[in-house]
Structures are given as structure tokens and as C-alpha cells.
């Protein structure tokens, strides 16, 4: 799958994630995409290397009172003696739709999602992330359209299963569509298969047209 991804995360997002500046919902998007995409993983790890270089650099030792307390290392050994083992996250099964970071938020794979219908055949599930941005799973039946909408902020939509197209391009598994506030688009799921996406938004969407506007409070997006 990883070689077929055409639409990647921007360097801005990857740097912000590496520096630890992204909000939780957008971090979930980055972690989920990077789990599927070696191109972005390599890019992210090279930005992490900048963080490592700063940790090793000459900008840090000037901070006063940085000496560790004299008994720090003994305290660490005492902690290690209490519980030496470190759990590792179970590997994802081959036929799972969700990468591990997404499974952590859903509490399992596709079967564990608590979908809510939001009209016109669409379903969604809001994921529990901190305020400031929203993460949700979106279920678009084969051939159906997400109502024409624009944004106040940025919306990232990543395909997990199936595919969709909008006025500008087409998106398959792993592809991320980035829509900024000046973009109005109507994603339509491919006819061959229902489409499941992860979408994150950092401001409410603004729908055009009367029916989507009535639906917006229910969409909570």
C-alpha cells in the first residue's frame, strides 16, 4: 500500500508534529498516516533528528540549575527494580483497516466503531480528542457525496478504505486531502466500494445549501 500513496502530509505538519506543537486531533492524523506511509515516516524521522541535534547542541547547557539531584540515578534504579518490563503495543493484524494509533482511539478495529447516521446515508463517529480540533471517522456509501462545504480552518481527510474524488483530484487508501479555508469541495465516494475516512478539522465546517445547513448541528463538525 505504502508505495501507492500519492497525497502526503505537508512538511509544516510533520515539523509541527515532530516539535510536539500539533493539537491532539491533527497528531492523530499524522500518526495514522505515518503508520501507512514510509515516505512521510522517513521525512518525520529526519525532522526528529533536528530535535536530537538540538538536544545535543550548545543551546541547552546554559540553562541554570539543570544538574540532576544527587540521588536521581538511585531513584531510577529503584523504579526499574519495581517494574523492569516494558509493554509493547500489539502488532496490527494484516486485515485490519485501522492502523494502531487509530485503534487506540476507537478501542478496536472497524467492527468497534459506534457509527451515528448523519443523513443522506452518511455515518460518522467523533473520536475523543482534546478541544481545539475535531477528529472523526466518516462513512460514505459507495457513490454518495459529502455535502458541498467550505471551512473556517483546515480540514484533512485521509482514506482508510475505498476511495473518493472531488472537483480537484482522486484519493485512495492512505491518501490525505488537505482543504484550506478557501477551498469549497464535494467529495464523492467511488461507486465500487463504501469509503471510510479519518477527517480532522480545526474549525467548524460551513455547509452551503439549506439542507446541509440544517444538518450541520447534527454533524457536529
Amino acid at each position: 500500500m505504502t508505495e501507492k500513496i500519492k497525497h502526503h502530509l505537508s512538511d509544516d505538519l510533520l515539523i509541527a508534529y515532530s516539535a510536539g506543537l500539533l493539537n491532539e486531533a491533527f497528531s492523530l492524523m499524522v500518526a495514522t498516516h505515518v503508520s501507512l506511509c514510509d515516505t512521510c515516516r522517513a521525512q518525520l524521522e529526519s525532522f526528529d533528528a533536528v530535535g536530537g541535534a538540538i538536544l545535543e547542541g550548545d543551546g541547552l547547557p546554559d540553562v541554570p540549575h539543570v544538574a540532576m539531584s544527587p540521588d536521581a540515578i538511585e531513584a531510577i534504579f529503584a523504579t526499574i527494580d519495581l517494574a523492569p518490563a516494558q509493554e509493547t503495543r500489539a502488532a496490527r493484524r494484516k486485515d485490519d483497516v485501522f492502523p494502531a494509533p487509530l485503534q487506540d482511539y476507537v478501542g478496536g478495529d472497524l467492527a468497534s466503531v459506534k457509527w451515528r447516521p448523519v443523513g443522506m446515508g452518511l455515518k460518522q463517529a467523533i473520536l475523543p480528542t482534546a478541544k481545539g480540533a475535531t477528529a472523526r471517522l466518516l462513512y460514505i456509501p459507495a457513490g454518495a457525496a459529502v455535502p458541498d462545504h467550505s471551512h473556517n480552518g483546515t480540514e484533512l481527510t485521509m482514506v482508510l478504505k475505498g476511495a473518493f474524488s472531488d472537483e480537484y483530484d482522486s484519493f485512495g487508501p492512505g491518501d490525505v486531502e488537505t482543504a484550506d479555508q478557501d477551498v469549497t469541495h464535494t467529495p464523492v465516494a467511488d461507486i465500487s466500494e463504501d469509503c471510510i475516512c479519518l477527517a480532522v478539522t480545526d474549525a467548524p465546517l460551513k455547509f452551503k445549501g439549506i439542507i446541509p445547513r440544517m444538518l450541520q448541528p447534527f454533524l457536529r463538525i
Binding site: V30, S35, R89, A91, A100, P101
Partner: peptide, 11 residues
């Protein structure tokens, strides 16, 4: 920030 930090799958 008292937020969770989603991390990519380990390789």
C-alpha cells in the same frame, strides 16, 4: 498539555 500523544505504529 495533559493531552494524549498519538504515535505511529512501531516498526
Amino acid at each position: 498539555r495533559r493531552q494524549r500523544r498519538p504515535e505511529p505504529e512501531d516498526l
